[in-house]
Amino acid sequence: MDLIPRLLAGESPALARAITLVENQHPDARELVARLYPHTGQARVIGITGPPGVGKSTLTDQLAVRFRQEGMPVGVVAVDPTSPFTGGAILGDRLRMTRAAGDPGVFIRSLATRGQLGGLSRATGDVIKLMDAAGRRLILLETVGTGQAEIDVMNYAHTTVVVAAPGLGDEIQAIKAGIMEIGDVFVVNKADREGADRTVAELEMMLDMAPDRGGDAWKPRVLRTVARDGTGVDEVLREVKAHWGHLEQAGRLQVWRRRQAEFELAGMVRSLAAARLLEWAHQTGVWAEVRDRVVERSLDPCAGAELLLREYREAFGRRAAKSPGTAGRRGEV
């Protein structure tokens, strides 16, 4: 895999191709990520989330330009929804990132959700790792315009910025119900529009009502911006950095890293374990037996699943004595 040295040297075409392999679940992708993983963990990730059209991409663009001015190599991951009907997507975030897009020091990659719920693409975690390994020290992660349950971004971002805008109406309710808890920084963008004061007041009130997290816990603030002309963006930058400062104290970063590792590990266990079990059950015919008992009503689906697990454990115990066993094989998905 000659991609790896080129990617580690920061070459854009190599990084771009690696991302494609990961997105397409190419057979080489697993090993690629495994070999690059030791080179990751350096980057800061800022998540940018909020309802559709509030100015997430425009704000991301402005932040990218400022981090570049500080000499940081920047990566942007921008996620847009895949059409559930055609499987296609128009990835329009880059359209609003014209300031940063002119600078080869900013690597922008648009991803489609490809059926994944949660506001991100399934490949997001790996794409961040690839950018990290390629030396992008600052990564901006823009989610799809969120409804309310799309909180996956908090599992990847050190700092989550929740963006709102005046005149949202119902969408403010959605923020209250869903993404209020995940924001470290709140931004009311389009402050040039009427109603900004009210939106700021609403968000501040919600934050005041949030349960007290203790004396030295981070207290999110509500800032206002006009991302289109850059007004207030420096203040957002300062607030994001203040949040980093906070995260770096009292062992919080280590706590964050553990939580992040657990999120990814648990996700992998869920998908690998389920895939293995299903494959085994189909191959051995146990699946069909259990299914038929569920059809006959002699087992309910939950009891059926437990039976499958039990049978798998027994079969695996027997086979493990003869062969190295599935758990011993590495690099296999």
Binding site: S83, T86, G87, G88, A89, I90, L91, G92, R94
Partner: peptide, 14 residues
Amino acid sequence: RAYRDAGMEVVYTG
């Protein structure tokens, strides 16, 4: 739009 409707992913740069 035609490309999207045909199941492709389209980046439009403006």
